[in-house]
Design a protein around this nucleic acid. Structure first.
Lengths: 175, 175
DNA sequence: CCTTTATTGTAGCATGCGCTACATTCTCGC
DNA sequence: GCGAGAATGTAGCGCATGCTACAATAAAGG
């Protein structure tokens, strides 16, 4: 039977990736963080690619869970308020590592198909959180998506205040 | 005297980084692309870090030159038009590699200070290209910056059309 | 010409990478 | 208890990385 199974290893692995980034995700450090050996990681997951897929999937699921918990559907009163809520959550210490990984995935380049699917999911998530009275929900969700991603980029460069000003100018002040 | 100096090597090195990304920027491939050896790259530039600094500087200068050439100051008739011009240029085959590198830098993480300075430069560049009649130039430039960066992210994920819809919704149709 | 300095080649080091071969221990069903 | 298979340890392979030691060549100035 399994004594140190995937399910037990995965939380430590995702935690390590979340605070070291994709760059530091090589087998031996990952194994040490999870209390195993590189040997066993390959044994349990088959290959490094499969390992990373599992880790990234777990991170995505975790992100999704936390977003759902933080922002219920149809609670926002305006586009500006929804955008600010999402940005605030994304900037929280719990979730900012997830978005750093997101940038890592985007920069990787060959993950474009997966990145597109993730974006589609996020777009749908945004769509069912739009205020009821919004006109052109598709356009509105796309606008939020672009602005939020732009905010993430500016945050990564230490220019979050600029992003806040941008959202205020384009969506008005929330509330 | 110098037979294969930095100035002669740099264009080949930047070209190689532009089409392989930061990930593939290790000494031996770079050297082969430039027609030298890793040994000589270290000889000329001192260390890999110094090499990369020089290459990234050259790429930034090239990007800036091309942007200036493509979009003169004060030629845009509206925010939407300016945004679309910049996005069109950024998507052109000549410049899209530069922005792929930009994402690479952002994801790297420890380059946040340099990334901030680059963004500041781009913000200033945008500011002096705003239409004359725009209200709140600072806010307008920040809005364009955030939207353009968001567009780059969506492009990287193969969702450029979404970004176009977002800009149309937030800035109106250009022209 | 001849010394001195700049430039280049060859070979290699130490480290880290993903992964594997082989042997061992552990656990569980019988 | 015992055999079978799951789980783990040890050691190492082949490759790539940044970088260096040492020696050879080329060029330039006296």
């Amino acid at each position: 039977m399994t004594r140190l199974s995937r399910e037990i290893l995965l939380p430590h692995l995702t935690a390590h990736v979340l605070d070291r980034g994709l760059g530091g995700a090589s087998l031996r450090p990952l194994a040490k963080a999870a209390g195993t050996s590189d040997r066993m990681l390959i044994y349990h997951f088959g290959s490094k690619d499969a390992l990373m897929a599992e880790i990234l999937g777990a991170i995505a699921a975790d992100l999704s869970r936390r977003l759902d918990a933080a922002i219920p559907a149809r609670a926002a009163v305006s586009l500006a308020a929804l955008a600010d809520q999402v940005v605030a959550v994304a900037r929280s210490p719990d979730l900012s590592p997830h978005f750093r990984i997101w940038l890592d995935i985007l920069a990787g380049g060959q993950n474009a198909p997966m990145a597109g699917l993730i974006l589609d999911g996020f777009l749908a998530w945004l769509t069912c959180r739009l205020p009821d009275d919004v006109a052109d929900p598709e356009g509105a969700a796309a606008a939020l998506l672009a602005l939020i991603e732009g905010t993430l980029v500016l945050d990564a460069a230490g220019r979050g205040a600029l992003a806040d000003a941008a959202r205020r100018r384009l969506l008005g002040t929330p509330g």
